[in-house]
Design a protein around this nucleic acid. Structure first.
Lengths: 238, 238
DNA sequence: GTCTATATTCAGATAGAC
DNA sequence: GTCTATCTGAATATAGAC
């Protein structure tokens, strides 16, 4: 990376501004003029540096997901090496997958809470090119973690595990992205916005027990077919 | 609001088309021309009948949420009357809140799966007017259900209950709205799209145990006693 | 109530001077 | 690499005939 010290690097400023604005207003709701205005650069600079608005969005994510994917794979490799062939604990798998994500929220150089919220929100953007982009970016990591969960929960049908993976992703995404949306719905302000870097720790303590509780909940009747699974008694709260 | 004649009712056709297109492409991603084209009506008809695109969106939701809110309140009233002052069971509360929602997915006259997915997806739309609209529509029902949960879980801090309400809403919304988005992420096709009316039953059997497991998961350490905010070990492992 | 035609604004993208 | 000026198309909305 060539450090443009004299100037605060046009490229980076565009990416930072786009990251924040896509988070606040969504992809369709953010115009190039809003981005270049906020970044303090010329309108033409986006197309010069990135080629198009779509390509800009992809680059906004690529620079963050590169680290996230690498870290998630590294942690899984490490845990599996230590386990010497034994299945991992579900809680350890979730901690690696979601904890790594939440860690980004504490580190501004990894995008901080802005990127976390952008990521959660963008997963529901309907545009086709966004969905195909994420499919490619996530494929390897999700496949590895899915297989780790299959081994960790040998009595649970694979389809059920995939469903619960979906549900955990959904809960986590809303917990992060929908902070203000859901606050409006539940009419109650949660202490996330004012906490800055600590927000991710608070989130983690709140969310991880919920996810584990959901993942290990009793199976629905019709899903138990292959071999009668011991009903995981959902340890009562409080 | 005056009744139109025998016609296939321009107003309804616009609402139906808008419901589907907003679900598929989002609010910003759907143009008036797409809507009037799909509905087979004139472009000017939307502004004649509804006044603006924003007002159209609100009306799309109002005609469905009227039933949903009424039914949710009715069920809660009924249960509370039968309980004669005793707290309700958490599972009964969730069944009333989320089961009513899922029931709409089985009934085409209530919008079917199209509306369910639209609702889940629209909760994350960043536009301001959408968020304030939902705040007003949801206020009463959410307040009533929150209070029912407070009574049902007297040992759990209110803030924790609200968080878990958020998380349940998020999981449910993604399970419904993000069907294709998350399928792309997890790289696995779930049997939702082809099941038609049965989709809601399948969803219910899959999702309700997960939600209950999450709601009743062990509490994070710091939520029990307000002073110590230690790093939390989310209780038991596998 | 429905339609045509149009006003107005704003979007993404680019050509070409510097 | 950066900037001005502009192209082209599409968006919402409305005026006014029928």
């Amino acid at each position: 990376m060539s450090e443009a010290r004299v100037q605060p690097d046009t490229r980076e400023r565009i990416l930072d501004a786009a990251e924040r604005l896509f988070m606040e207003s969504g992809y369709e709701g953010t115009s190039m003029r809003m981005i270049t205005g906020a970044a303090g650069v010329n309108l033409a600079a986006v197309n010069y540096h990135f080629g198009s608005k779509e390509a800009l969005l992809r680059e906004v994510f690529r620079r963050r997901l590169a680290w996230l994917n690498r870290e998630r794979l590294r942690l899984l490799d490490e845990m599996e090496a230590q386990a010497k062939g034994e299945p991992l604990k579900p809680s350890a798998i979730l901690e690696a997958f979601f904890g790594t994500l939440l860690h980004m929220g504490t580190d501004e150089s990894l995008g901080g809470m802005t990127f976390l919220r952008l990521l959660g929100r963008t997963l529901t953007e309907p545009a086709d090119f966004i969905r195909t982009f994420f499919a490619g970016e996530y494929a390897e990591v999700v496949d590895r973690y899915k297989r780790a969960l299959f081994r960790a929960l040998p009595d649970v049908p694979h389809e059920e595990i995939i469903w619960r993976f979906h549900l955990m992703l959904g809960a986590m995404s809303y917990a992060i992205a929908g902070t203000d949306a859901l606050q409006v719905v539940t009419g109650c302000e949660l202490d996330l916005n004012n906490e800055g870097p600590r927000a991710a720790e608070l989130l983690s303590a709140r969310v991880m027990p919920f996810l584990l509780g959901g993942l290990r909940a009793p199976l629905p009747q019709f899903a138990v077919s292959p071999q009668q699974t011991r009903k995981t008694e959902p340890s009562k709260a409080a």
